[in-house]
């Protein structure tokens, strides 16, 4: 897929709660390149003295009617904090689209399950939409610390069945996503994105249930295009770049 360096205009910046912003961007030249679920963008943030490199951020959604790219940004440091604070109308430079995509399930009988934790829900919305367009009804299992950390449930509910778990029991089932009762059901495929311990626990469940499973990794990156070899993950084929060969990996490729 052709990659671009492109300027975008921030059209909407919705603060979801203290740590997250849902940001919608329109290309300045009106041409929105093709992008696949699971892919990411590298955002340039010029006004932060501690931010030298671009920030890799998952593509949260593509609204093709409005030619909008959605990013879900977590305020993790000074760079993302500034990004999440940009005013509507700000021009933001991005390199995109980067990385690979998810695999369509071969089994059409059962539901695909998309498990997200924290900001890891970001790539699952767009993937859920594409699954829905293919006539599949995805199930989302979304986990957070409290009900306040659950983001955009309306958007997920519009695409599939939504199951929740919170660590304090304030919404859905109490506990971690990996303890949720919906996991008793049979699924065609499991896709997961979130903190590494969560994804590793999901991978173990997928192996036990013998369900194919893909995870979205977010190793520390510099270039985003497979040139610097910084973001490597140790796989069965050795060190591979998460930015180029991933970020989506089948768990069978990983040393998990």
């Amino acid at each position: 897929m052709k990659k671009y360096i492109k300027d975008f205009v921030l059209t909407e910046n919705k603060q979801l709660h203290s740590a997250y912003a849902l940001m919608k961007f329109r290309p300045q030249d009106g041409e929105l390149p093709d992008m696949l679920p699971g892919q990411f963008v590298e955002v340039r943030i010029d006004d932060s003295t501690t931010t030298y490199l671009r920030r890799p951020i998952s593509i949260h959604n593509i609204d093709s009617n409005n030619k909008e790219l959605w990013l879900l940004v977590r305020r993790a440091g000074d760079g993302t904090n500034r990004l999440a604070s940009y005013k509507e109308g700000t021009i933001v430079n991005m390199v995109l689209p980067l990385g690979n995509t998810f695999t369509m399930p071969a089994d059409k009988q059962h539901q695909p399950l998309l498990i997200g934790g924290g900001v890891g829900v970001a790539p699952l919305l767009y993937w859920g939409k594409v699954l829905q367009e293919q006539g599949l009804r995805p199930a989302f299992l979304l986990g957070a610390r409290t009900d306040k950390d659950l983001l955009q449930l309306d958007d997920f509910e519009a695409v599939g069945d939504v199951y929740l778990s919170t660590e304090d029991g304030s919404a859905g089932e109490k506990g971690f996503v990996t303890q949720h009762s919906v996991l008793q059901q049979q699924f065609s495929y499991i896709y997961t994105c979130g903190p590494k311990p969560m994804m590793q626990a999901v991978a173990r469940i997928a192996r036990e249930k013998d369900v194919p499973c893909e995870v979205s990794l977010e190793n520390m990156m510099a270039c985003g295009v497979g040139a610097c070899l910084c973001c490597v993950e140790d796989t069965v084929e050795g060190h591979v770049c998460v930015c180029k060969e991933g970020p989506i990996f089948n768990i069978d490729r990983l040393q998990w």
Partner: peptide
């Protein structure tokens, strides 16, 4: 082994 990169002020 990973991690192989650390950002620094105006560098890495």
């Amino acid at each position: 082994l990973y991690p192989r990169m650390a950002e620094t002020p105006s560098g890495m």
